[in-house]
């Protein structure tokens, strides 16, 4: 998907002039980013360039110092707690370390947000929705296992399944392939693609894995020092004379 085509379709995430500092550490210095419905945007950049902070602001886990973030037509900073909760039901967040609840089985992990947000659902409806998402991440057989018994790749998939069960319109992935072997990484990349195609969700994928970026992204956004350095398709972004972007590409494939 080209950048200019986003203007013609519905914008689901609109970030304008975003600034965020932690003390004297200025992490974001005026980020502008738009995500169209159904689009997968990959945000690339070095560690500490503010990528994770960006998506935490999008889902309201952090608040920006300056600038605006509009998600599905709602200004995230200026909505009340109830509206934020409603918005969060439409925005799934997949954590870097999966963040599965240790004391619950896989099935309980996935049923948890469902049972707490849709109390009117019967037990059989909850079970059927849990099994549906477990099927879509190909891990139905692990439903009675605890997170400690799963591999890194399986944990990632369960983490994604837990967000999918709420049927979100937007998915935010924080380093989906970090710490995984190449085979598991490919599986996760394919899963992200499948989710996008199957459920029509829009995504922001934070990564420094170029294979992940190439496989999952319709559009790439390159961030350095808290600002967007360049954006476009994979080839457009890396067809450049910018030394930092070139070295980012080269080191990824060493």
């Amino acid at each position: 998907m080209q950048t200019n085509s986003a203007e013609q379709t519905e914008i689901v995430i609109d970030i304008k002039g975003l600034y965020k500092s932690f003390g004297n550490n200025h992490v974001l210095k005026g980020v502008d980013l738009q995500v169209a419905r159904g689009e997968n945007v990959v945000v690339l950049g070095r560690s500490g360039s503010g990528k994770s902070v960006l998506i935490k602001i999008v889902c309201g886990l952090l608040t920006q110092d300056k600038g605006s973030v509009t998600v599905l037509g709602e200004d995230v900073k200026n909505i009340n707690h109830k509206q934020l909760e409603q918005l969060r039901l439409k925005v799934g967040f997949s954590f870097q370390l999966s963040a599965l609840y240790d004391s619950m089985t896989v099935k309980e992990n996935i049923a948890f947000p469902l049972m707490r947000n849709f109390r009117e659902l019967s037990k059989s409806e909850v079970n059927s929705r849990v099994e549906d998402v477990l099927n879509s991440v190909s891990l139905l057989k692990s439903k009675d296992q605890y997170p400690a018994e799963l591999s890194g790749g399986q944990k990632k998939r369960i983490g994604i399944a837990r967000t999918l069960v709420l049927r979100p319109e937007i998915m935010l992935y924080d380093e989906p392939t970090a710490g995984l072997d190449p085979i598991s990484s490919i599986e996760i990349n394919n899963l992200i693609r499948d989710i996008s195609n199957q459920f029509g969700v829009s995504s922001i994928i934070i990564t420094h894995d170029l294979v992940c970026a190439k496989t999952t992204g319709d559009r790439l956004v390159m961030m350095f020092d808290g600002v967007v350095q360049s954006q476009g398709t994979f080839d457009e972004v890396f067809d450049t004379e910018d030394e930092r972007i070139k070295s980012f590409y080269e080191y990824n494939f060493i």
Binding site: C59, G60, L61, E85, Q86, R88, L89, V91, G92, F93, F95, Q96, L97, A99, L100, Y101, D102, F112, P113, R116, N117, G159, R162, T163, L166
Partner: peptide, 22 residues
Amino acid sequence: GAMKVTEQIEAMDVSASRPYKY
């Protein structure tokens, strides 16, 4: 504390599961 450092509390928060209440 362990739930906090492994982002489990944030995970409850982003799924509107009201971690304080639970």
